[in-house]
């Protein structure tokens, strides 16, 4: 960085301290929301994915299904490459489980000699990968369609309604995140732009004199663009610090009050890549906002009149 640039930056901070601090505060708030969004998105997806891991894929067999048909269904499920375990549940086992689960609520049921067994034999399969997106949900639907067409299969259940809502929720969250991020980042351009515009107005005479003595466009604009970039970078550093403090605080609350959900272990802070993204966004949007407000100054001819 040249001495001209350093002097220009120092002078700008000295002469517009109030504006600079106000910009830094507003921008820090903006980037904190951006960082929190990245944080929330990563952890929301992580938590939902964990819940998605627990999706059970159940294949109910017809009572009249032959042993060959049952074996064929099992082989199909195992060879699909979509499941980490495929367990056969006989009619008797299903009834036993049902009695155990419902026994406390209905003791008469256990004593009823007439109680038949309406429950079918089934396969219970656990998914190899959880449902973490609309596309993985679509794969599950396609698989269910192929399984139900197999001979001997009566029905397939994978919590259709729940999984569908869950996949939609993921999609809505991702879409709304991007929309909100776009709005916030566009706002950050305006915030930086206004701060730099104020600096330019305050230095109008200086800029004109610089031009009259042969300063090039970039000699005039360079320090202002670097100033915007530095404000953006400082704001993003502060926002990550603020975000980390909020993270520590919520971790404590999650452990103390919601420990039974195990959220504290699930939720993690921003990754190195995400931190780098926030810093680059701060730097880039600071520079871009600044550039957009100075692109019309120092264009050569009577440039000062166009400020």
């Amino acid at each position: 960085m040249s001495s001209h640039m350093l002097r220009s930056l120092a002078r700008s901070w000295r002469e517009h301290t109030g504006t600079q601090i106000a910009t830094l505060v507003v921008l820090t708030g903006t980037f904190t929301i951006v960082a929190l969004f990245l944080f929330a998105q990563a952890n929301f997806v992580k938590i939902l994915t964990r819940w998605g891991d627990n999706v059970q894929f159940a294949v109910f067999l017809e009572d009249a299904a032959s042993q060959d048909q049952v074996s064929a269904v099992k082989a199909f499920l195992e060879n699909s490459g979509r499941f980490k375990s495929v367990d056969f549940v006989s009619k008797e086992k299903a009834a036993e489980t049902f009695r155990q689960q419902m026994g406390n609520n209905s003791p008469e049921l256990l004593r009823d000699p007439e109680f038949g067994n309406p429950l079918p034999a089934s396969f219970e399969a656990r998914l190899l990968e959880g449902v973490d997106s609309k596309s993985s949900y679509d794969v599950l639907v396609d698989l269910a369609g192929r399984v139900i067409s197999l001979p001997g299969v009566n029905d397939v259940s994978y919590g259709q309604g729940w999984v569908e809502n869950y996949a939609s929720l993921l999609k809505v969250f991702a879409t709304s995140s991007w929309i909100l991020l776009s709005v916030l980042l566009a706002g950050s351009l305006l915030i930086v732009g206004n701060a730099i515009r104020a600096a330019v107005q305050g230095r109008r005479d200086e800029i004109e004199i610089l031009e009259l003595f042969g300063a090039t466009s970039w000699y005039v604009r360079g320090p202002l663009i670097v100033e915007g970039a530095l404000i953006g970078l400082f704001a993003s550093i502060l926002s990550i610090g603020l975000c980390f403090a909020l993270f520590q605080w919520q971790q404590k609350i999650a452990e103390e009050n919601l420990g039974f959900w195990g959220l504290a272990k699930e939720v993690g802070f921003l990754s190195g890549t995400q931190i780098a993204i926030v810093l680059l966004l701060g730097l880039g949007f600071g520079a871009l906002g600044s550039y957009l407000s100075v692109r019309r100054i120092a264009t050569g001819w009577a440039a000062a009149e166009r400020i």
Partner: peptide, 10 residues
């Protein structure tokens, strides 16, 4: 041209 103005002013 605009970019020549600084050269002239020097």
């Amino acid at each position: 041209k605009s970019f020549e103005v600084p050269q002239f002013r020097r």
